[in-house]
Design a protein around this nucleic acid. Sequence first.
DNA 1: TTAATACTTCGGTTAGCATCGAACTATGAA
DNA 2: TTCATAGTTCGATGCTAACCGAAGTATTAA
Lengths: 227, 227
Amino acid sequence: MKAGTDLAQIASLVGDPARANMLAALMGGAALTASELALEAGVTLPTASSHLAKLTDGGLLRMTRQGRHRYYALADHQVAGMLESIMGVAATVGPRKVLPGPRDNAMREARICYDHLAGAAGVAMFDAFAERGFIAIDNEDVSLTDKGAGFFRDFGLDIEAMRKKRRPVCRSCLDWSVRRAHLAGSLGAGMLDRFIALNWARREKDSRVIRFTPPGRAAFEKMLRTV
Amino acid sequence: MKAGTDLAQIASLVGDPARANMLAALMGGAALTASELALEAGVTLPTASSHLAKLTDGGLLRMTRQGRHRYYALADHQVAGMLESIMGVAATVGPRKVLPGPRDNAMREARICYDHLAGAAGVAMFDAFAERGFIAIDNEDVSLTDKGAGFFRDFGLDIEAMRKKRRPVCRSCLDWSVRRAHLAGSLGAGMLDRFIALNWARREKDSRVIRFTPPGRAAFEKMLRTV
DNA sequence: TTAATACTTCGGTTAGCATCGAACTATGAA
DNA sequence: TTCATAGTTCGATGCTAACCGAAGTATTAA
């Protein structure tokens, strides 16, 4: 019964449309200012300010001052994971009758999900790695194989450093747009970092869209084929 | 922006105290009648009925009629996972002053998490195995040692068969009730199977609670000590 | 048929909270 | 200092939704 109260407290924070829009915007991983979030949520500054205070008090956001700006970001990975899991449920039960506009198309193709690659490109990568036995999948659980560790090391990732961190190396994450799993965890984040470092892709400013460069797209697809 | 709306829709369903209490009660895995859930939520039948309709429409619950009863249960695995993840956030953020009721106590003590043992008993077992060097823990990653393989073989598990499967043999899984790791993967599942085969424990019907038999409890604790 | 149980629907009340404008605080620039 | 930008606090308003009692439907029991 007290469990229900805790549940309700957190969920009701997410359950308001204005706040939910702010949280969704922050799932891109970037920290945003109060004004930007107000715009994103479609409310005035005072309203946004009140919501942001609630979210921060509730432990869902953390705030850092920088000059006269206040940057808000998701508090931690656990919060991001919770939001993804709610989105996952929303995607499976939702009406799903939205015809995607041009911008949505880009989102469906490749976007950032907290800090790793999601969308069709993310799903394709996940499938390719599984196919080749670089990752082992057991329902919800994903683990890195020895064979995979070798490949990712060659690709420029520091697997040992990842293993030392508290964050899971491998995780699957359900994609709301395609309803398929993609690669999360520090491995997923590391791969996206590498793509950007190699100039295969870049983040679109103030958006969750990931744009592949033409040579990057080719290299990415080649990697999937040869994998 | 559409993402935020979906998010809010689902979260607001969970965000009402009465509904959250119902959902929490249903996390036990058992299907409950409308009257039972009304009692659980502390509201009258009409109010409960209205809430249950919303939850069912929203895709969070599924209902089956049986005579003049209507049994409600969580819609699927994904919904249960979402609730767990919200509880996880609530636990890290929340005041942590919950006095668990008798039923919650059983859940905290020993319950099933997918297919392996969780709760205090699961954590104790995990710690004991780690202590003795049967499993090696490197932050998130857990691996089976040679010494451990010998022990588990003697206990009746087919380690070689587990290694052949794609599923990771060893995994750790974070427990929301105690916030400590316990043993997942095929080894975790195998151990629980053995406990049940040995009649040390059994699953409570329509629930996630695991009940140890008195001799089973003694044998389990002896195993932990001698391990 | 009658009665009882299990649950839903309807209607009206109430309380909470999201919202905004206006005024206030704080940081930075001229 | 003065002005501008960024954000918060306050007070009033209005809408939503949770709630219950009473009446209605459905299923089983006698």
